[in-house]
Write a protein that binds this DNA or RNA. Structure first.
Length: 868
RNA sequence: GGGCCCGUGGUCUAGCCGGUUAUGACAUCGCCUUUACACGGCGGGGAUCAUGAGUUCGAAUCUCAUCGGGCCCA
């Protein structure tokens, strides 16, 4: 078996991609006694572009899925697609040059579905290229009847339990999308505007929205505001429009803002809604669904909001009502998709009840990673004032399975067994209670979050032939959708099953460009995962995802991380190649027999195996905590430094040598090490690991078990001695390097003063004879410094510690050293003698060669003499 | 206005339930073709741990304030 010198990912990655039988990643629904590990994978919106942010998140998921599988879990890593929504509608309108109302509903839907199917296919391709171990047998597509039947049933169930209801209520409205939206879909931004000061009959009021004068239903002032004593309870006439409105008192009015008198319109903002509800004011709708003025606006009817604002200001000026204008910085709510300023309109809509306590209590039962992300959910939950508006006035979404009786207007909600259905296409299977069979279909559709907020239920077998496996174990997602996806999923899971949706939620960060800015088209700093794969490899990309930053925090994309990842792959390959060339005559299946007992191995082998065991232990624990960066950095450090730079150099002489037992010991150790590294690398670099494993094991590495931690391999003595050997060799190497010698240049002799058993590896690695001499060298030790041990002196002497340290470090080191040799150190602080134990200080010594033609190295306190 | 996170060599970062010389990577400089790897090896330089105060024998670490950056919400 020859291993090529270079690792070529562009050949190896596609090779495994097509060779892999993806059924090895399938979840086993029945008769499996492994513990389940179900991941509530985010269903991406099928834009056709699986971007770098998705990729980061999916890398995390894949690390977890592969790791858990190797740890013996029955893992489900499903893949969903959150299809419905406005962007697809807009795209279809663009490509076909139509608007949604120009073609029949079903035809428009079909166009959307076609586009979505194509986009999903493109994104699947990228996912495959990145090597994700997705369980495609559990794929779900929210626009498919198989899925949306569940969305519809969830609607009906929640209606039956009165957690979904219909009502006329103010809602956030996007005039461009012509649909209601939820608070979660409103973004805020500051805009420059003007505060207009108006003579308002007998009062003065200030308003930023004069275009809503026609919708004015009251004027409010603070009852404690003495300027307006006696006004409360009266009425005032609205300028230009002439209708009378009451003057009411409300403590919420800020007397220092504007004139202290504020007009209440239906509706200028959220505060208007609060006042409107509290004071039971009438409703005047001045803005229609497209953002145009209604007949209430009189001569301004049909104008857009902006046109109306301009015209009204002109008229107010010319008629002398407007007496001042001041610039005002305003926070404007906007539609999160199209950035159009939202309006608040009162409409008949469907709502889902929000039980804040239930959400907060459930959130407490879920493990949040990182912990502080829970606060975001809590803050958001606490600010909820209205219920969740779940109806939308669009087409490409899950239909609301409802009709209205033409005779008595009664609402007919579909029976669960009728579902799935589209009420615009078929009627109910029963007559209305009034006897009528004539119905109007509900044309509104459901918020797409109604689809995606049951993913946890769906993947865990809700409403299927399988038993319900809720809660799932992990929800991975971005922090940008905590207020939506997390919030709604908890709400729905509790409402529909009474169970929490997940044991843990893992929040990933956002990906920033190399300039530290958020990746965006306008900044031109977008990097696609495909580009990274082409220029390097999927395994390199995945390493960037692992080490780019700690889980949860935003991470920057950096090409140099990808470059160093590629180098690491090459380094591992090189270690592998070296190992394989020395393992040709070694039987892999023979590792536990063949008369090799770990205790008989040379110390450097035991040193490595001990460190390897600790590595597995440490990686296991950081993987359990989803600390991928820590896990991978630990593996990389060990592989590169401990194995490549130290161990391989130390055992080369044995591997090339004639001593069969010594060689066999190295082979044994090498094999275990390569096997272990291959396995623990598998979750991170699945292609590289598979390629390596294909020659050292049978079957795919991805169905192997995670290495066991064999505590008996941990050998502190071997580690200490091994460390010393490693340090001695490193010192000799440094010595040669500094002396301009070739690293394999033989030295006359190396004398080591101290206790050291086996030195053959030192001889091999230094290419020089080694003599171990027990006892003190006859060189002069010169103490050159005293280092106080703070850990001992500090807690024991507290206030005196400072003074003691001062004395110790300023005293002649030789004097202190003599005291240490005698067993105790006495220092005098403020006339008081304090006796310190010898452990309280470390004496730094320098060894001076007494005239011999040698060089003396000090390796961790041990004297090593180089005889030239 | 409220909440949350964060300021560590040129850049990014570890450490942060206090305790010897502050970790690593990239970059930089010098040396080396050594039978796995020059996509490599060995070595060097480079940090007032944002600023100020406090607690303490001792602070990158704890407390407070200030400044700066980011995110979420109003």
């Amino acid at each position: 078996m020859t291993v090529p010198k270079e690792y070529i990912p562009h050949e190896i990655e596609p090779k495994w991609q097509s060779a892999w039988d993806m059924s090895m990643y399938h979840f086993n629904w029945d008769g499996d006694n492994r513990p389940q590990y179900i991941i509530d994978t985010p269903p991406p919106y099928p834009t056709g572009n699986f971007h770098i942010g998705n990729s980061l998140n999916w890398c995390y998921i894949d690390f977890v899925a592969r790791y858990k599988r190797m740890r013996g879990f029955n893992v489900m890593f499903p893949q969903g697609w959150d299809c419905h929504g406005l962007p697809t509608e807009v795209k279809v309108e663009e490509t076909h040059g139509i608007t949604k109302n120009q073609v029949p509903r079903m035809e428009f839907r079909n166009m959307c579905e076609e586009l979505t199917v194509n986009n999903i296919e493109k994104m699947r391709k990228t996912m495959m290229n990145l090597g994700f171990s997705i369980d495609w047998s559990n794929e779900f597509i929210t626009m498919d009847p198989a899925y949306y039947v569940k969305t519809q049933k969830s609607f009906v169930k929640m209606f039956d339990m009165e957690r979904v209801y219909q009502d006329e209520h103010p809602v956030n409205w996007c005039p461009r999308c012509e649909t209601a939206i939820a608070f979660a879909e409103v973004e805020y931004d500051t805009r420059e505007s003007h505060l207009n000061f108006l003579h308002f009959d007998t009062l003065e009021i200030a308003t930023s929205r004069p275009e809503l004068l026609s919708a004015c239903v009251a004027v409010a002032i603070n009852p404690d505001d003495e300027r307006y004593n006696g006004s409360i309870g009266g009425t005032v006439k609205v300028p230009l429009f002439g209708h009378d409105v009451p003057v009411i008192g409300d403590k919420e009015v800020d007397p220092s803002f504007g004139t202290g008198a504020v007009m209440i319109c239906t509706f200028g903002d959220k505060q208007d809604v609060r006042w409107w509800l509290e004071h039971k004011l009438p409703l005047r709708k001045a803005i229609d669904k497209s953002g145009n003025m209604t007949d209430i606006a009189g001569k301004y009817e049909g104008m857009t909001i902006a046109q109306c604002k301009k015209a009204i200001i002109e008229d107010l000026k010319s008629e002398g009502y407007l007496y001042d204008q001041k610039p005002l910085e305003q926070n404007v709510g906007m539609c999160w998709r199209c950035k159009t300023a939202i309006e608040i309109l009162s409409e008949r809509q469907w709502f889902a009840k929000i039980d804040q306590d239930e959400i907060l209590n459930t959130a407490d039962e879920i493990q949040w990673l990182p912990e502080y992300m829970k606060i975001r959910l809590q803050n958001w939950t606490n600010t909820m004032e209205w219920d969740w508006c779940i109806s939308r006035q669009r087409i490409f979404a899950t239909p609301i399975p409802v009709w209205y009786c033409k005779d008595c207007s009664k609402v007919m909600v579909a029976k669960e067994e009728w579902l799935p259905l589209d009420p615009t296409q078929i009627g109910p299977k029963e007559a209305c209670e009034c006897g009528s069979t004539e119905f109007e279909p509900e044309e509104d559709v459901l918020d797409t979050w109604m689809d995606s907020s049951i993913t946890a239920l769906h993947v865990s077998g809700w409403l299927s032939d399988h038993e319900l496996r809720l809660p799932t174990q992990l929800r991975p997602q971005g922090h940008d959708i905590i207020r939506t996806w997390s919030f709604y999923t908890i709400l729905r899971s509790m409402a529909l099953t009474g169970k929490k949706p997940w044991d843990s939620i893992l929040i990933n960060g956002m990906v920033l460009g190399e300039d530290g800015q958020k990746m965006s088209k306008s900044l031109g700093n977008i990097i696609s995962p495909e580009t990274v794969i082409e220029e390097h490899s999927a395994d390199a990309f995945r390493q960037w995802a692992a080490v780019g930053g700690s889980t949860g925090s935003d991470i920057m994309f950096r090409w140099k991380d990808v470059v160093s990842a590629s180098r690491f792959i090459q380094k591992v390959w090189s270690i592998y190649r070296f190992s394989m060339s020395h393992l040709e005559d070694y039987d892999f299946n023979d590792k536990d027999v063949s008369g090799i007992s770990v205790n008989d191995l040379p110390v450097i082998d035991r040193w490595l195996l001990s460190k390897l065991t600790k590595l597995v232990k440490s990686v296991t624990s950081s993987m359990n905590e989803y600390q991928f960066d820590e896990s991978f950095k630990t593996i990389r450090g060990f592989t590169w430094e401990t194995v490549a730079d130290n161990y391989l150099e130390l055992v080369k002489s044995r591997l090339y040598g004639d001593d069969a037992d010594a060689r066999r010991a190295a082979q044994y150790t090498l094999h275990i090490t390569v096997d272990t590294i291959t396995r623990i690398l598998a979750p991170f670099t699945p292609f590289l690991a598979e390629e390596m494993y294909s020659q050292i094991g049978s079957g795919s590495v991805h169905v192997q078990s995670w290495p066991d931690v064999n505590e008996s391999l941990i050998d502190e003595d071997a580690e200490r001695e091994g460390e010393l050997i490693k340090d001695i060799v490193a010192s000799v190497r440094r010595y040669k390097s500094e002396g301009g010698m070739a690293l394999n240049a033989p030295l006359k002799e190396i004398e080591i003063y101290g206790e050291l058993g086996d030195v053959t590896d030192i001889e091999g690695a230094t290419n020089s004879p080694v003599k171990v001499i027990v006892g003190e060298p006859d060189f002069e030790h010169v103490p050159v410094g005293v280092k106080p041990n703070m850990g001992i002196i500090g807690p024991k002497y507290r206030k005196q510690a400072g003074a003691i340290i001062k004395i110790l470090t300023e005293e002649n080191p030789q004097k202190i050293a003599n005291q240490v040799a005698s067993g105790s150190i006495v220092v005098t602080v403020d006339g008081e003698d304090i006796t310190l134990e010898p452990e309280a200080v470390m004496i730094e010594k320098e060894v001076v060669s007494a005239g011999r033609a040698v060089d003396v190295l000090d390796v961790s306190g041990m004297v090593v003499v180089i005889v030239r």
